[in-house]
Design a protein around this nucleic acid. Sequence first.
DNA 1: TACTATTACGAGAGCCGTAAGAATA
DNA 2: TATTCTTACGGCTCTCGTAATAGTA
Lengths: 308, 308
Amino acid sequence: MNLSHLAIFYAVACEGGFTKGARRLRLSQPAVSKEIQALENRIGVALIDRSNRHFRLTSAGELLSSYARRIFALEEEAEHALAEMQGLRRGRLAIGASTTIGNYLLPRLLGIYRGLYPHIELNLEIANTSLVQQRLFEHALQIGLVEGLASNTELQATQFARDELVVIAAPDHPLLDEHVVMAEELCKYPMVLREEGSGTRVLIDRALAAKNMVLKPVMTLGNSEAIKQAVAAGIGLGIVSDLTVSVEVNCGRVAILPIADLTIERPLHLLHTPDRNREPTVAAFLKLLKEHFGRRPKKTGRCVQNKL
Amino acid sequence: MNLSHLAIFYAVACEGGFTKGARRLRLSQPAVSKEIQALENRIGVALIDRSNRHFRLTSAGELLSSYARRIFALEEEAEHALAEMQGLRRGRLAIGASTTIGNYLLPRLLGIYRGLYPHIELNLEIANTSLVQQRLFEHALQIGLVEGLASNTELQATQFARDELVVIAAPDHPLLDEHVVMAEELCKYPMVLREEGSGTRVLIDRALAAKNMVLKPVMTLGNSEAIKQAVAAGIGLGIVSDLTVSVEVNCGRVAILPIADLTIERPLHLLHTPDRNREPTVAAFLKLLKEHFGRRPKKTGRCVQNKL
DNA sequence: TACTATTACGAGAGCCGTAAGAATA
DNA sequence: TATTCTTACGGCTCTCGTAATAGTA
């Protein structure tokens, strides 16, 4: 069967006549007549009762018409769904992110995204970099936002922002009263750090090693939240990503302690498969990301609040 | 959207590649490539991710593919349904019949029909001739089988059999012992007849009036069953259609009394709309009808059993 | 090199329109 | 006569195939 023939038959069946069907399809009436004959010949059954003037479908015609109605309703629904997808009123955005980005940076960004495109299904997977890469590779995720960057994959990576590690202290810490604090002073105070081997700790140790310095942690903890708690409790100074402390800084539980001769930064990377034609949902997210990180947010003063 | 384009896209999506899709459709690969581009241009979205060697649908492609699967499944189902209809494994036969035909003639015929075509839905409406004609006219019935025949309709009518009215008597009735019984003898015995004005009674009265005779009913009853009961009870002779008495004759409750000089017959008519192309279910029924009534069943002897 | 997709171009089938014919109310 | 469907025929679009090109493992 030929579905374009079926479309002609269906128009005729709906309108109740060859002439009316032809008008609806903007075809000439003989063309319609001929195409319906072709359809009838192809399937070998009369569809329209031509015995008298009153237009009437045969039972085969009724049967086929009911199928045609469903088929063309589906076609229309498909077109509608595609239009919705293009208008970002339908679709899915699947992002993978590292813990820090996923917990502190993305929630607000995804909130804005959801405000703009409320019908898009959002999926956020928080996992380590290699797992995010794997999930991207198998197309379970569309983009990844991570700090680290493993090599030898087919993924495209671009840096979209920088993450700064900052020293935090309890609000009553004596160093906060100093006008200028140098890195070497940190070594005199107890520190609360991530465990050795973690990406953050490696970065910190490497930055201080460049100055021939070694920090002495009084405590190591597995995540930034625990470090913030320990610092607030006065156990020592901590070093965490500035993304993670805006709330605690704003409410005065901890304070950022600028170090005059020390900046520890790491790039934040955007990962994606090298698709030339990106999904509309992804393109919209990347646009949003660019708007927020086109210029790096400035850090001014000790109590700067991150833009996000 | 063009559904023939969609078919090409769907084959490619199913097979996972332009080349494989082309093989399945028995088309050249460039043709497939071009048609898919045409489809993408028409709907304005990329459907297939061409960024690397691994064939993959975009999310729009996935969406459209799922609709295509449903659309073409429906198309296949429609073709299957039509084939079933042609093979008389699906369909409907709606017959209207008068009481006598519907109750005594059709059950066996429809039993045979059902044995041949067990999946055809059978509808039998028992009603008077004018109602049957009306229902035929509005296409609620496909054929009608009636005794009478009202005029001025657009229905085609053909006689398919004759119905003989026979005199019945209780098995111990004295006339049954006579070798030859003439019509005038009937007038000497009490008769149980249908009420005046009924089609059957009109026929009887007319036949006897032609011989200048008038029957004297001792009782009039509204239907043949009641007449048979009255006759069996010895109230008198009855005149009923031979279609209605085969059971009672066979089991000896009543006997047929042949009248040498009297034959009361009426034609049985087949009514249908003047469709040139008849439904397969109807054609099959008409064939069956012709096989059984091609020659009128002979009546031999007094206890003849009707062929049906 | 082998495989896959795209581009280019020509041939042919099939679709559609105009005009005329047939049937019916 | 007016309306509706069918038949006849010619043009044109669209689809398909062959051949050549490009990109990738």
